[in-house]
Amino acid sequence: MNSLNTYLIISAFLFSLGLLGVLQRRNLIGMLISVELMLNAANLNFMAFNRFLTPDPVVGQIIALFVMGLAAAEAAIGLSIILALFRKMHSINIERAQKLKG
């Protein structure tokens, strides 16, 4: 069972879970965590492909590091947006943000 398919199935499962979270959760923090989940699913894919298909240049691992950096940046920006929204609306429920529509 130590094959590529296992990793792919796990990562697809993780990705679907993240997507569901993003679409279904009304809490902005929860949405942010779900996005992290999706990014990690992608990371898992990169690692798996790197390990099983082209082990020699470790490009997949490098990209996984980049994605982690990106995730950190995204979390910082996302949290600051959430903070700003909270100051305005006194809530982090995404339904409140409907007021922003023109």
């Binding site: 679409l23 279904q24 995404i94 409907q98 922003l100």
Partner: peptide, 8 residues
């Protein structure tokens, strides 16, 4: 509708 998640 202004609802972010519908767009997503």
């Amino acid at each position: 509708s202004g609802m972010l998640q519908y767009n997503l």
